[in-house]
Nucleic acid binder design. Structure first.
Lengths: 346, 346
DNA sequence: CTGAAAGCGCTTACAG
DNA sequence: CTGAAAGCGCTTACAG
């Protein structure tokens, strides 16, 4: 393939000036260019498969229609469903995403922001894998920025997050409504904000029901962490009739432990996962009831906020957008009952 | 923050011309610019925190140091470990990735390639989530392109893939070496190239050992698919002493089925997963022996190939790079033995 | 109603 | 040894 055609090529072929080409192709020809010449321009453009050079437009307009995305991964995976939805939404407005993975290193993140700035991104989107505080640097503040799944403690930046306390509350209420009273709470590190918020929510639900909140069993976030914690708790006398897991893989481990101990779910043990982003919960056996954050809608909203800011020079007010979670009822929750299951055999 | 400083600003402050600034900052000053003025330029640049505008450089040099990435997801997730490693490797050479997700729609992919072309990407990288054939369009052929985890049937494009037949063979050999003879093969759709290749490899290993290959049990690719298939096979008389699963989530389902049926792994049932990209296999209970593709190395190599092509105008020869897999031995494989386990109770 | 010019920010020959 | 000019591809005032 030869070199891409330029507006000059189109102008030459159509027998008009470069500016005429620009005017016609951008729909600003009426009253300026004769109909005849307009047709000639369109024909020439089509013949040469002309499309404008986005880099040249960027230099001219001082806008790249590019959003710089700063993200990092918590354990194994990047927050994929979030980024997917964000990318899709951005495309709708002809924005492209330039993504940088800090790997959790703040200094590196700063350098990446500089790279993004040098690339003349129009704005920044910061996407956290799990909800957290994020202190924006000056550079971040110098361009339109929206925080997704994280919040600026200073409150200086618009952010989009789910109500993680509500997540915990909803998950607990599902079990309380079914009559569960002895509930095991399998969690990740309590030092993580997202864990702390969910645990708080669980506690609120219990207190609201006139019960004392369950003591968190800090397990971790992997399958084997959940397996170990669940196995131990299930081996204790007066074992719980239900588990709440703050992480999806923890729930997988709990199901596995229950299966191995011959404790049928949900007959003898109910299970709620406070996460389902990896899509493990819905296809587990039995499918797990989970508390769902509307990640796609959140990402769309975050991008929409940013795009609006980029389109409108008037500085918009800072907003804290809080999304509600939804309980996805599946088959892992039942009333406590007396089913019991067979005793552990190993 | 005020508008970013330009080379002109630096020149004004340093009392030199714009070209002098460029020369000095790009290290081509020796023998051209007096030492005194060089110092002045550096000082002014530092004072103004000057960094060149990448868009302007791109327009001038006709290179954007940007790689257009075309990808799509197979089921739930994008091929994340691959993309991560590719991005990291690209950064090492100051390249940024512009990613487009076709969603599996070829027409959409074509339009996305056009967008990328208009953005003046220097080259293309096509990344498939599971190994597949990929027929490049003319547009793709018009720029330096490397295929990652897919191959051009015409062989016109350099590609980087793992030897998926070997994956199947290695997985089977692990079991054959331990003395297993009755092996269940849980697979995804045989119409998928990656499944077909792995099944073929398993067959080769069996034939090589003088045995007839196991008949694939087409299960699907989710946890419940694996659970159902494994449950059924384990309920049959003369049940297998081992499973090979072509997909990681299938293996999770198999472990779950075994646990529920009281079949201890690996004492009464060995298990090999032919995938571990999601990182479920290593933290399952027991940790699963898996066949690992060196995704990071593959991605690095693909990017390195592309970058080399971009740096060197001489057209490099087309190459088909085939990577070996590695068996990650964990605890899910043991000799068949007579452990048996307790009989199914439900 | 149309074409020539300026300018976005940069680098690289090219005069002086 | 240094500065002025050209040009990457585009769009938008500005003359004619």
């Amino acid at each position: 393939m030869a070199r891409k055609a330029t507006a000059q090529d189109v102008a030459d072929l159509a027998g008009v000036s470069r500016s005429a080409v620009s005017l016609v192709l951008n729909g600003r020809a009426s009253g300026h260019i004769s109909l005849e010449k307009q047709k000639a321009v369109f024909a020439a453009a089509a013949q040469l498969s002309y499309t404008p050079n986005a880099v040249a437009i960027s230099l001219r307009s001082q806008r790249t229609r590019t959003i710089g995305v700063l993200t990092w991964s918590s354990h194994a995976a990047l927050p994929d469903p979030i980024l997917r939805a964000a990318r899709l939404r951005a495309h709708e407005d002809q924005y492209l995403l330039l993504l940088m993975d800090t790997g959790g290193d703040a200094d590196r993140g700063q350098r990446q922001l500089e790279t993004l700035r040098d690339r003349q991104v129009d704005g920044f989107l910061v996407v956290a894998p799990d909800i957290t505080h994020y202190e924006p640097s000056e550079l971040l503040l110098s361009l339109p920025t929206v925080l997704l799944n994280c919040v600026d403690p200073e409150g200086g930046l618009t952010s989009v997050v789910a109500d993680e306390v509500e997540v915990g509350r909803c998950g607990a209420e599902v079990l309380l409504e079914q009559g569960h009273r002895r509930v095991g709470l399998l969690t990740g590190s309590l030092g993580d904000l997202h864990v702390a918020l969910r645990v708080r929510g669980v506690g609120q639900a219990f207190v609201g029901a006139g019960l004392s909140p369950p003591t968190p069993v800090v397990a971790g976030r992997q399958i084997d962490d959940g397996y170990r914690a669940a196995s131990q708790v299930l081996g204790e006398p007066d074992r719980p009739t239900a588990f709440i897991c703050t992480a999806e893989r923890l729930a997988v481990g709990a199901v596995l432990a229950a299966a191995e101990l011959g404790v049928p779910v949900p007959d003898a043990l109910s299970l709620v996962s406070l996460e389902d982003a990896e899509g493990l919960a819905p296809t587990l056996v039995p499918p797990l009831t989970s508390v769902h954050r509307p990640y796609a809608a959140m990402a769309q909203e975050a991008v929409a906020q940013l795009v609006a800011r980029l389109a409108d020079p008037v500085p918009a007010e800072v907003r804290q957008l809080l999304f509600h979670c939804q309980v996805h009822h599946r088959s892992s929750v039942a009333p406590p009952g007396e089913a019991g299951g067979r005793p552990a055999s190993r």
